[in-house]
Simulated assay, not measured.
Amino acid sequence: MDFGVTNKLWEYGINSHTSAIAEKNVDGSFAEIAAAKVAEKVADKGNAAGMSFKDVWQARFPGAYYHTMDAYKIPQGTWERYDFPHEQFFNDNVDESVLDWKPTGAEPKLTDKSVQSRIDTTLGKKAIVVPPALEEKMKNDPALAQKVMARVERFIVNDEATLPQGRIYSCVVILDENGEIAHAVGSSGGGNIVGPTEAEQRQFKAEQAAKKKRREKYMELNEESALKRKILEQETDRRYYKSSVARKNAFNAYEKSIVEI
């Protein structure tokens, strides 16, 4: 088995925060611009023909798989494991038990034969998983469907562009209910690359550590934001209560003065 440097893409998890940043930086590269334009053309044709998001996806990527389920709820740490059954999404039917998958032992290495053989079965394939709620939104909002398609197209083009020439690429993209990319994983094989060097392995580990740190920082910011909102709500409730008490006291005083008169 020839596992190339790009097989490290098998562990490629991103959250809605990083995908949103990528969306804002659409002008950053020719590949991104080209991807967006192609996706817009495909989506425009699909909208004009009354095509569903599934039809547009499979028109853009013939033979690609399309599934409807809430796969975005799979924990990030679980999704990133080398023994997670990503290959199940490259089938016409997916058993929903994959949503509750739990590891039964230590995580295998990327070079493990079982991991490599599973990667081999996915080469050249693409799949997308759409939550039922998002699918319904896109049926009623063609502009949203076009935006989501452009986002997915941009991710795939950028991801595949990192591969050496001749590599066979595959990927699965998981969307959340807002059309953001919640999870994604890519893999590749073929070509004449014989494996990652020690320097490349160190770089990969550093990238994963940085990605983990960014994810933890994002979660921390979310928690801080939630706490601030809670404090603001409590302060608003307190002020409303004081205002209500003041109004009630004023009314009671007024009634008392009327009675005394």
Rank of each mutant, 00 (worst) to 15 (best):
S225A: 13
H183E: 09
P75V: 03
G105I: 05
K126F: 15
K73F: 04
I168W: 01
F204V: 00
F53H: 09
R118S: 05
G190M: 08
V5S: 03
S244Q: 07
R118P: 00
G191M: 08
K37Q: 12
R154L: 00
T68I: 14
K24F: 05
A36I: 10
P108D: 03
F53L: 14
W79P: 00
G50E: 04
V157R: 04
E40R: 07
R167F: 10
K147N: 08
K217I: 05
D95T: 01
G28W: 06
V185P: 00
A143R: 07
V148T: 07
P75M: 04
S117P: 00
K248F: 08
E32A: 11
Y169R: 14
N25C: 07
Q76L: 15
D159A: 13
N15T: 02
E135Q: 11
I174L: 05
E200P: 00
V115G: 06
G191S: 13
E216W: 09
Q146T: 14
D176I: 11
F30Q: 13
T78C: 04
A150D: 01
Q165D: 12
S225W: 15
T78H: 14
A209L: 11
A143H: 07
F30L: 13
K212A: 14
T68S: 08
Y218E: 15
D120F: 11
E135M: 13
G13Q: 07
A106N: 05
A133F: 04
Y218W: 13
I181H: 04
Q146A: 12
I74F: 12
V56C: 14
L110S: 02
V56K: 11
Y169T: 02
Y66C: 08
N47R: 07
V56P: 00
V94C: 03
P85D: 05
N91D: 06
M1I: 08
E223A: 15
V98S: 05
E87S: 03
I181Q: 03
A161T: 12
G28A: 12
A150K: 13
Q201V: 04
F3Q: 10
M149I: 12
M149K: 04
K41H: 04
G63W: 08
M51L: 09
L9I: 01
F155N: 02
Y218C: 09
T197M: 09
S114D: 14
I33G: 01
S187T: 13
M138A: 06
M51R: 10
E180V: 01
L144E: 05
D92S: 11
A150C: 02
F204G: 00
Q88P: 01
A209T: 10
H67W: 09
P108V: 14
V259I: 14
Q76N: 12
P103F: 07
P131A: 05
R81A: 02
K45M: 10
K228Q: 14
A39R: 05
F53R: 09
D44I: 00
K213W: 13
S188C: 06
Q203F: 10
K8M: 15
L110K: 02
G191C: 04
C171A: 13
A49Q: 09
R118G: 01
A182Q: 14
Q201S: 07
I33E: 09
G190C: 04
K205D: 09
K230N: 02
R60T: 03
